[in-house]
């Protein structure tokens, strides 16, 4: 299948007073039509920076230094700000963790929604309000008519997130980027929103880039998964193979440390150490310090993408070397 979005060698740096923070160093992946791609990782792994880079929403002192973001073959990084604005919200929409801060508190939901629809669909106010109502119905909002006349603060967190999704989808985008859409919500509400995202993506064929720190969410929502660590992808694959057959020591460590899998009384396995300093990153594999299968040679050079099996890739020197040895190629370094 032809990819909808292709990110190639993305480097995004932040020029802080302490030095240049290398938030993303060579992120490459593709998003295919209709799929839900989970981008998972812990704080500081660069998952949100990736999303913001795609939307070109990186603010000072951040800068996209290198790479390509191809949307239907067109490099978004080469577009003018004007051209990008028409893509943003129309072809690629984004929803955020805290829907309250993304909704202007002094305007009614109807006004907020219709203004966005008027811009993207070039219709009049009445028509826009009708579309808004239809969209609210589609996101299963109870009493859509009434909600149009309410202010954001009158809605609960879950309802606000529904409004955000309705707004994001009102222009029929091909890609929806959802940045931690349920992190601020209660568990029972989280389920509702996730189900909505699955339903909408299946019904409308929207491709979703789902960014989350929650492995449970990816496991149950995504079709494919990308695991990120310290500004790099470490593993990529179909959700089934990642969760039943995780390869990268970081992925394994993350899964093991979940309390839902542990028994009471058992010590939880942890990943020792902390993130490397991204201002002065080590030359070799960024996970080296915390890795339980590391070798001397891992300190030399960043690992490259290695094909493990059907659509399953890993970025790890050791795994690559072992596999190559087994195949009789000998060490490759």
């Amino acid at each position: 299948m032809e990819e909808l979005l292709k990110v190639e060698g993305l480097h995004t740096y932040f020029h802080t007073y302490r030095g240049v923070l290398k938030a993303l160093t060579g992120v490459s992946f593709s998003l295919y039509p209709g799929e839900i791609l989970g981008l998972v990782g812990e704080t500081g792994c660069g998952k949100s920076v990736t999303a913001r880079s795609i939307m070109r929403l990186i603010k000072e002192p951040g800068k996209i230094e290198e790479g390509k973001i191809l949307y239907r073959g067109k490099d978004l990084l080469s577009l003018s700000e004007e051209e990008m604005r028409t893509i943003r919200g129309k072809d690629i929409s984004m929803i955020f963790q805290e829907p309250m801060t993304s909704l202007n508190p002094v305007l009614k939901i109807g006004t907020l929604m219709s203004e966005v629809i008027m811009v993207h669909k070039k219709v009049n106010k009445n028509r826009a309000l009708n579309i808004a109502k239809k969209m609210l119905k589609e996101v299963k909002m109870p009493d859509p008519e009434g909600v149009l006349n309410k202010y954001p603060f009158e809605l609960s967190g879950g309802m606000r997130q529904r409004v955000m999704i309705a707004m994001a989808l009102s222009s029929d985008p091909e890609i929806l980027i959802a940045d931690e859409p349920t992190t601020a919500l209660d568990v029972t509400i989280q389920g509702q929103i996730l189900r909505l995202i699955i339903d909408l993506s299946q019904k409308r064929g929207t491709a979703v880039l789902l960014i989350t720190h929650d492995l449970g969410v990816v496991a149950n929502v995504a079709d494919r998964v990308i695991v990120m660590y310290a500004g790099n992808i470490v593993e990529e694959g179909r959700v089934k193979s990642i969760f039943t057959n995780p390869s990268h020591p970081y992925t394994k460590g993350l899964l093991r440390s979940l309390p839902s899998l542990a028994k009471e009384g058992e010590e939880l396995p942890t990943i020792p150490g902390t993130l490397p300093n991204l201002i002065y990153p080590p030359k070799g594999c960024l996970f080296y310090d915390r890795c339980d299968i590391r070798e001397e040679y891992c300190k030399e050079g960043r690992p490259e993408r290695f094909h493990l099996g059907e659509e399953h890739y890993v970025w790890c020197h050791k795994i690559k070397n072992e596999k190559m040895e087994r195949l009789g190629y000998g060490r490759t370094d």
Binding site: V187, T188, Q190, G191, Q192, L194, R195, I198, D214, L215, G216, V217, A219, N220, V221, V239, K240, F243, T244, L255, L258, S260, L261
Partner: peptide, 15 residues
């Protein structure tokens, strides 16, 4: 609670 393993077959979230 969303278990960290994918569902067999169709995705479904009960809530």
């Amino acid at each position: 609670i969303l278990p960290p393993h994918p569902p067999d077959g169709e995705k479904k979230i009960t809530t």
